[in-house]
């Protein structure tokens, strides 16, 4: 099950991947929070169309960038879904788990 590495093993061949996973996990969490907030504002209906388009484009590019980075580090979507024990998974069940 995915866990944050207890410590980052400073072996040159794995340190990049471990650090990458840690950073990508945090970025992915922020991206999802931003997306949820954006959807709430769309729901509320107080955003002008061009603002919605802007927000959507930004989030879409961010997601594409995340996929590329994840593939660069050889990670599956579930690898970023940290198991928080009784709290469930960081990114929820939809994000998959390892």
């Amino acid at each position: 099950m995915p866990e944050l590495p207890r410590r980052v093993d400073a072996q040159p061949d794995t340190v990049g991947r471990d650090l990458g996973r840690l950073v990508l996990t945090i970025v992915e969490l922020l991206r999802q929070l931003m997306e949820r907030q954006a959807l709430r504002r769309v729901d509320a209906g107080d955003l002008p169309d061009e603002k919605i388009e802007q927000l959507g484009l930004g989030l879409m590019r961010l997601e594409e960038a995340m996929v590329e980075l994840r593939e660069h580090f050889g990670l599956e979507p579930g690898d970023l879904n940290i198991d928080l024990g009784p709290l469930g998974n960081l990114l929820g069940p939809e994000a998959g788990s390892r």
Partner: peptide, 18 residues
């Protein structure tokens, strides 16, 4: 011709379906 809007609406539909 509004890929950003389409993306957001798609994500919203995903969320609601979930």
């Amino acid at each position: 011709g509004k890929p950003g809007t389409a993306y957001l609406l798609r994500r919203r539909a995903d969320r609601d379906r979930g």
